[in-house]
Design a protein around this nucleic acid. Structure first.
Lengths: 146, 146
DNA sequence: TGTTTGTTGACCATTTTAGTCAACAATAAG
DNA sequence: CTTATTGTTGACTAAAATGGTCAACAAACA
C-alpha cells in the first residue's frame, strides 16, 4: 500500500507554494534543493499540476512556479489523484463491471470501505489546513528547542 | 496505493476457509480453481499464514488447509500485515527516526492519518464479519435473481 | 509401498518506479 | 535584439517490486 514518490513530492511542493502564497513565483531549482528532489524529476511532476490548473509557471529570469488557486481550494485528494491516479487498493472497486466476481464477493466490499476511509482523510484536507498545521508544528518545535 | 495480489488472494482464501469452518480441510487445488489463483502461487502464500498460526495444513490423501483460529479471532489487518507488510503509505510513518524531516514536516503527519484511517477498517474487521456479510450478500442476490 | 497431498527455495518475465537527459520554447533584462 | 534565465517535453534507462513458475522434497494416508 505504498504511496509513490510522485504524490509525496508533489504534496511537499504544493505545501511550499502554499506557504509562499502571494509572494510571487518560487524557483524550481530552489524547491528541488530544499525538498531534496532531483530537479529533472521535479520538472516532470509539475506538468500534470499545471494542466490541472493548480499551479502556473513563469519562465525567464526570476520565474518559477506558483499556486494558481487559493490554498483552501486545493484538496490533498486532487493532488494524489493527479500524480498517482486512483487511491483504490483494488481495481475492481473502481470498475466493478469488469469483475464478475465483485457481484458476489464481500472482499470487494471491504476494499471499497478501505478506500473510502482513505479518501475521507484526503478529501477533507486542504492545503490551507496543511499550512496551518505546519505553522503550529514549527511553533511547537521552537518552544521545545528552548 | 495498490494492494498486492498476495493480500487479496490471501483474504479470499481465508474467507473460504472461514465459510468452511468445522468441516475439515479444504484441498488447495480446489481453492485455486474456485478462486482463480494459480496453484503454485497459492502454495507460496500459505506458508506465512501457517507460520503465523492462522491456518494449519494436512498432508496426504483428503488433506488440505483449514483455519486454526476461530473466524472471529482473525482480523483482516493481520492477514494484510502477514502477506503484504505494513500498510504505511510512506516509510517515515513506520520509522520516523530514520527521517530527520518528519520532525518538522506536516506531510508526515497527514500520511500517518491516512494509515490510521485504513488500519481502523482493517483492524475492526474479522473473518466472522466477512462470513456474515458474505451470507447476507448471497441472500440478497438470490432475492434479486427471482 | 505408492499415491496423494503440502513445503521450500530458486528462478524468471513483466511491469512499475524513480530518475536522467537532451533538445526545445518562452521570457525578462540589458 | 541578443543573451542569460527559466520552464517543457518526450524519450530513455536502471533498479526494484510484482506475479508467477518449477522442480525436488517431505509427510501422511490407504
Amino acid at each position: 500500500m505504498k504511496l509513490s514518490t510522485r504524490a509525496r513530492y508533489g504534496t511537499r511542493v504544493l505545501l511550499e507554494l502554499a506557504l509562499h502564497w502571494g509572494k510571487g513565483p518560487v524557483l524550481l531549482k530552489a524547491i528541488a534543493q530544499r525538498q531534496q528532489i532531483p530537479l529533472p524529476y521535479l520538472q516532470q511532476l509539475i506538468g500534470p499540476l499545471v494542466k490541472a490548473g493548480i499551479i502556473k509557471t513563469t519562465r525567464g529570469a526570476r520565474g518559477g512556479i506558483s499556486l494558481l488557486k487559493l490554498p483552501k481550494e486545493v484538496r490533498l485528494s486532487e493532488v494524489v489523484q493527479i500524480l498517482e491516479g486512483s487511491t483504490t487498493p483494488v481495481a475492481c472497486v473502481d470498475n466493478p463491471e469488469l469483475y464478475p466476481r465483485s457481484d458476489t464477493c464481500v472482499t470487494h466490499d471491504i476494499w471499497a470501505e478501505v478506500k473510502k476511509a482513505m479518501d475521507k482523510v484526503l478529501k477533507s484536507t486542504t492545503f490551507e489546513d496543511l499550512v496551518e498545521r505546519q505553522k503550529q508544528k514549527w511553533n511547537l518545535k521552537q518552544l521545545k528547542d528552548h
